[in-house]
């Protein structure tokens, strides 16, 4: 497993911790259950914290805690399960979350583009993914028809700008 964060292959500075594991030093990512149970102890550690949401655990469950969380990891139990795309958008667009949104689980190269568009800025990917594959997959489509979380200007408004520019040119 490798971590890509903001397009860079980086060492993972967070430890994924199971519900029964003893907490290691440093930054950790815990399950929603553990977070809900040990919230005070976890916050008191004063190290960066992440919570991992399974498919079916909605972002609203942690909406009030987001200022305490450096990472929200959203799980794809299988690539076919696309719930987390909606969760990521809700985190960003509805709850205004600015921390890291990380895709974990069954994350395939043919989905990188979609994930980034939905607001994921970190992805845990298979070891055979190279920077070249990443670049090709994430950039597969130069334009997008619909607005999403990535702030890319949709085709619709590009068209309007082109039309407006053409109109002013004609007017000159």
């Amino acid at each position: 497993m490798q971590l890509i964060r903001n397009g860079k292959f980086v060492a993972d500075d967070f430890a994924a911790v199971g519900d029964e594991d003893i907490l290691p030093e440093g930054a950790v990512i815990v399950s929603l259950e553990r977070w809900q149970k040990d919230r005070d102890a976890l916050t008191a550690r004063n190290t960066p914290l992440g919570v991992r949401l399974k498919s079916g655990q909605e972002p609203s469950a942690i909406a009030d805690d987001l200022d305490k969380l450096a990472v929200v990891a959203l799980e794809f139990p299988v690539y076919r399960n696309g719930r987390a795309y909606s969760y990521a958008r809700l985190l960003r667009e509805r709850h205004g979350y600015k921390g890291e949104v990380r895709a974990v689980g069954n994350v395939l190269r043919d989905q990188f583009h979609f994930m980034v568009r939905c607001g994921f800025d970190a992805l845990e990917v298979a070891d055979n993914i190279t920077p070249e594959i990443w670049a090709e997959s994430v950039g597969v489509f130069s334009h997008s028809y619909q607005p999403a979380t990535d702030g890319r200007e949709p085709v619709l408004s590009l068209r309007q700008r082109l039309a407006a520019r053409a109109a002013t040119r004609e007017a000159v």
């Binding site: 795309y85 958008r89 989905q111 568009r117 619909q146």
Partner: peptide
């Protein structure tokens, strides 16, 4: 058609 084409959120329904 355009809005739904490669919709990033709704390609794995």
């Amino acid at each position: 058609r355009q809005w739904s084409t490669f919709h990033p959120e709704f390609s794995f329904l």
